[in-house]
C-alpha cells in the first residue's frame, strides 16, 4: 500500500500538469470548432489524434520514429563520450587546456546547426550525417560539464588521495569522475534535447526517413495533422528520454 504522504506527493505531481493539459486541449478544441480556425492553420485535436493513431497503430510513423531515435541515440552516445573524454583529458593534462581551449571556445560560438548542410555534403544522405550532426551538438555541453565538474571536487579529498600516494589517473577515476557526475547528468539533460533537434534538422536538409522527414514532407503535402502527429511524437520521445536521464541520475548520483 502507498504511504499517505507518498500518495499526496503523487497527486501533487500529476494533477496540476493534467489540469493545464485539459485547459489547453479545451481551448484548442474550441479554437478549431467547425467555423473556427482553418484546419490548414491548426487541425482539431481529433484530427491530430486520428493521425497519431494511424501513424502508430497503422505503423506509418513507427519506422520514422525509430530512425530518428537511432540516429539521436547514436550521436548522443558518441558526442557525450567524446565530450567526457576530452574534458577529463584537459583536467588530467593541464597544458592541453591552453592548447585546446581557444579552439573549443571558437567552435562553441559557431551555431552548429548551420553546419548541417555542410555535413551532409561530406557524409551523404544517410545515417552518418545525422549521427555526426548530433554528436557535434552533444559534445560541447558534456565537455564543459566534465571539465567543470572534475575541477569542482572538494580539494580536501584531493589532498587525502595525494597523501595516500594515489596516481593522478586513480584520482581522476575515483574522485574527480564521481564528483563530476551531477554536472554530467545536468549536461545530458540538455544533450537529449539537442540530439533530437540536431537529428530533425539534419532530416529537414536531406533525408528519406525520420520524423524530421515526415514533418518536412507533411508541409509539402499540406498534411498539417500528420505534421502535428510527428511533432507530438518527437516531444514524447524528448520527454521520455529526459525522464530516463533523471531516473538514471537519481540512482547513480544517490549521495547528493
Amino acid at each position: 500500500m502507498m504511504e499517505p504522504r507518498h500518495a499526496l506527493d503523487v497527486v501533487k505531481a500529476v494533477v496540476p500538469p493534467l489540469a493545464t493539459g485539459v485547459v489547453i486541449v479545451a481551448v484548442w478544441a474550441w479554437a478549431t470548432r467547425p467555423g473556427g480556425l482553418d484546419a490548414f492553420v491548426l487541425p482539431s485535436p481529433m484530427a491530430v489524434l486520428r493521425a497519431l493513431y494511424q501513424g502508430w497503430i497503422g505503423g506509418t510513423l513507427l519506422p520514422h520514429a525509430l530512425a530518428t531515435g537511432k540516429a539521436a541515440l547514436g550521436g548522443l552516445v558518441i558526442g557525450a563520450l567524446a565530450g567526457l573524454a576530452s574534458g577529463a583529458l584537459i583536467v588530467l593534462i593541464r597544458p592541453l587546456e591552453y592548447l585546446m581551449m581557444p579552439l573549443v571556445t571558437a567552435l562553441q560560438s559557431v551555431p552548429k546547426i548551420a553546419l548541417a548542410p555542410l555535413i551532409i555534403s561530406y557524409f551523404g544522405f544517410g545515417l552518418e550525417s545525422k549521427v555526426f550532426t548530433v554528436a557535434l551538438l552533444c559534445f560541447f555541453p558534456l565537455f564543459v560539464a566534465a571539465a567543470t565538474g572534475m575541477r569542482a571536487v572538494d580539494p580536501r579529498l584531493l589532498d587525502m588521495y595525494r597523501a595516500f600516494s594515489a596516481s593522478p589517473l586513480h584520482i581522476l577515476l575515483h574522485a574527480r569522475l564521481p564528483a563530476a557526475a551531477p554536472y554530467v547528468f545536468g549536461a545530458l539533460q540538455i544533450a537529449v534535447v539537442l540530439a533530437l533537434i540536431g537529428c530533425v534538422v539534419s532530416e529537414f536538409v536531406a533525408s528519406t526517413e525520420g520524423l524530421g522527414f515526415i514533418i518536412k514532407s507533411g508541409s509539402g503535402e499540406l498534411d498539417i495533422a500528420g505534421m502535428f502527429a510527428a511533432i507530438l511524437s518527437l516531444s514524447a520521445m524528448g520527454v521520455a528520454a529526459g525522464l530516463l536521464v533523471k531516473e538514471a541520475q537519481r540512482r547513480i548520483v544517490f549521495w547528493s
Binding site: 580536501r156 600516494s165 544517490f254
Partner: peptide
C-alpha cells in the same frame, strides 16, 4: 574527508586501492 559515493568499508580501503 570521506568519499560520499563509497561505503564505509570502501572508504577504509582507499589507501590500499590507491597504492
Amino acid at each position: 574527508t570521506l568519499l560520499p559515493w563509497k561505503t564505509v568499508l570502501e572508504n577504509v580501503l582507499v589507501p590500499i586501492r590507491a597504492m
